[in-house]
Simulated scan of single mutants.
Amino acid sequence: MNKLNYEGKIFKTNNYGDVVVTKYVDSSKVHIRFIETGYEATAEINQIKKGNVKDRLVATVRGVGVLGDEPACVNGKHLKEYLLWQAMLKRCYDPEYCSKHPTYNDCCVSENFKYYPYFKSWCFEQIGFKQTGWELDKDILVRGNKVYSEDTCVFIPQEINKLFNRQNKNQTEYPTGVHYDKREGKFHSHLSVSGGRIRLGRFNSVDAAFQAYKQAKEDQIKVVANKWKEQIDERAYKALMSYRVESLIDSNSIAPTTKVIER
């Protein structure tokens, strides 16, 4: 078949609908356009005939992520930005992952971030992206945030991210940083620091123990924030310096208790 026989001809693909040949290049290559999305590419004629061409504007990652024309791998190795992007989509749209990590229930990704080329470009503009061990965070800039987007995400060192891990994940009756000693009949307050614990004291009430933890935790956050002040995004620094550990009364507990609201 020659140029006249190819241009304008429609072919079916295995998974991406129909494509139309828009321009004949030579006996092995042509330009094509996917009819459904308008995505254009150059393809080999033999692959078109087999239906093996791919529409890179179709959401193929977790059902929502669009790869576009940006490569996910170089020399057989996945790029850092792709791994971040793929992991972000997994946290939000993988049912099995969300069932094991319920804190990600109801989390989602902005339309811009669903498009890999946009996410990649955004990453390269961010402070800390090229630093080893820094992590993508969605909670520091906007408290309680559930949406990954360019307005809510920032890169931070692991040391900062670990500040917001709950200290007693399996404990529900008492707030973070507080436990009850039945033998003494006292409430103990403690702060996690570098994998260890600092005891803050023994108290007669949950609230008193929690207030000791609250003050120590907020002071700890400020110390770490100032340590990284010259390296992290200014928005992250301001958010850390104004961070407050909040509490509420848990009506489902045996007795009124204070509960920490943290990331």
Rank of each mutant, 00 (worst) to 15 (best):
H101S: 10
A225V: 06
P157L: 02
K138H: 02
I127K: 14
T13M: 02
S149A: 09
K9W: 04
G133T: 09
V142W: 09
W85S: 04
D18R: 13
Y6R: 05
I198N: 11
L83R: 14
V260Y: 00
A225E: 02
I198Y: 06
D26W: 08
T132K: 14
S247V: 10
K9V: 10
T60Q: 11
R263E: 09
E125D: 15
E234V: 15
V224K: 01
E125G: 14
A216W: 02
G177Y: 00
V61A: 11
Y213D: 01
F129V: 06
F124A: 05
F124D: 11
Q47T: 12
K182C: 07
K100A: 11
I48Q: 01
E70C: 14
H31K: 15
G38D: 11
N168C: 04
C73K: 15
E96M: 11
I232F: 03
T258C: 12
V260D: 03
V64D: 00
D233N: 13
R56I: 04
W122H: 04
L79P: 02
Y24E: 01
F34A: 00
G76I: 01
D219K: 14
D26G: 01
F119T: 03
N105L: 15
Y148V: 01
P175T: 07
Y118N: 08
I198A: 10
R33G: 00
L191P: 12
N145E: 12
S253Q: 06
E150I: 09
C108E: 13
Q47S: 14
P175L: 05
Y116M: 10
F155Q: 06
V260N: 02
I232H: 02
K90E: 15
D250W: 01
K229H: 04
K162Q: 15
I221A: 05
R166D: 06
T152C: 01
L67I: 14
S247I: 07
S189R: 02
D219A: 14
H188C: 12
K3M: 09
L141I: 14
V25E: 11
S205K: 14
N15E: 09
G144M: 05
G177F: 00
M1R: 09
S194Y: 08
S189Q: 05
A216C: 05
N161K: 00
M88K: 03
R33A: 07
S99H: 13
G68C: 04
C153N: 06
S251H: 11
E173M: 13
H190E: 13
K146H: 12
E230T: 13
G133P: 06
F203I: 06
T60C: 09
